[in-house]
């Protein structure tokens, strides 16, 4: 290439890179901007509680109509259930992968987890759905419900938890690994007292991201028991409402401007939840003092 051509390639690449970055930023801000522009007026207690007094609604004294409270409560419950199902199993599996699995077993299990991580969420939902059908054959009257959704979501986030645990444990320096062993710690004591606390920030940020995925997922729950109106969930085996499904539902079924506005409001709330979780995950990674988790 001549010197001139080189100079022009140089310039073209710079322009290309800058404009890509600008396009991406603009798209993101257009997205968030249009949400805020259309939805900011709806933000307020009414959006969540409708006409009911907030305290009464939270204490379940009064049912909320026309507010997002049942959907928020549903999503919150769903997240708590699925994360408390998935975290113990996922973290234990990750510890096994990092500390005990032989090279061959690690490859096989690793492949399984990679495939599981790649399974589209609607397929995981379909799995939960077929599970519910089987349970329906055994127990009459069983149908897709909160418990089924929680179990399916737990499977959805399991591979992330395994991976984050495994990578953060494997990242521990060999020096720290043998310190406690040289002091007479058993393998289990070494894991419990030294390795796990040391990898806690990685594991925690994995958990926070798992919470995010459970809160935002729509495809899994739409096959496993979420509905548009169910009120605050009363039982594990009942149907329930959830924030992301509400947004989906409104986008196709809204009947008036007020409902559409609630949809915008719900989107803003969900986006803020995800932003908050993201910031927490970042903070946990960065600033966490490991000492907090050493308990003697």
């Amino acid at each position: 290439m001549s010197e001139k051509a080189l100079k022009w390639t140089d310039r073209a690449v710079v322009v290309f890179a800058w404009s890509s970055a600008i396009i991406l930023i603009c798209a993101l801000f257009l997205l968030i901007g249009s949400l805020l522009k259309n939805g900011w007026q709806t933000l307020g207690l009414d959006l969540i509680f409708g006409n009911a007094p907030p305290l009464d609604a939270i204490l379940l004294k009064r049912r909320v109509f026309g507010g997002l409270f049942p959907a928020i409560a549903g999503t919150l419950l769903l997240v708590v259930l699925s994360v408390s199902l998935a975290v113990p199993i996922g973290v234990c599996a990750g510890v096994y992968m990092s500390e005990y699995a032989s090279a061959g077993l690690r490859r096989i299990l690793g492949l399984c987890f990679d495939i599981l991580a790649g399974v589209p969420s609607i397929v995981v939902g379909l799995f939960g759905f077929s599970g519910a059908i089987i349970l329906h054959r055994i127990f009459d009257g069983f149908r897709p419900c909160l418990a089924v959704s929680a179990a399916s979501l737990a499977i959805l986030v399991l591979p992330y938890l395994v991976r984050t645990t495994q990578t953060s444990m494997q990242g521990i320096s060999p020096g720290l690994r043998i310190t406690a062993l040289a002091l007479g710690a058993s393998k289990m004591q070494n894991i419990v007292y030294v390795l796990l606390p040391r990898s806690m920030s990685g594991i925690l940020s994995g958990i926070v991201l798992a919470i995010g995925r459970c809160a935002e997922d729509t495809a899994v729950i739409m096959l496993t028991g979420v509905v548009a109106t169910a009120g605050v969930p009363g039982s594990l085996f009942g149907q329930y409402e959830a924030l992301p499904f509400y947004i989906y539902y409104i986008s196709s079924q809204y009947t008036d401007q007020a409902e559409l506005m609630t949809g915008y409001g719900a989107s803003i709330i969900l986006l803020c939840v995800c932003l908050a979780l993201f910031l927490i995950a970042l903070g946990v990674r960065k600033g966490l003092s490991h000492q907090v988790f050493y308990r003697i």
């Binding site: 020096g175 310190t179 002091l183 050493y294």
Partner: peptide, 25 residues
């Protein structure tokens, strides 16, 4: 017992470092 080339206190307080082997035992 073993002591290494690079000092390897665990990331905890002085006292807890000292008490750690006792706890293990």
């Amino acid at each position: 017992g073993m002591v290494f080339q690079i000092p390897n206190p665990l990331p905890m307080s002085i006292f807890r470092n000292m008490a750690f082997p006792l706890k293990l035992a």
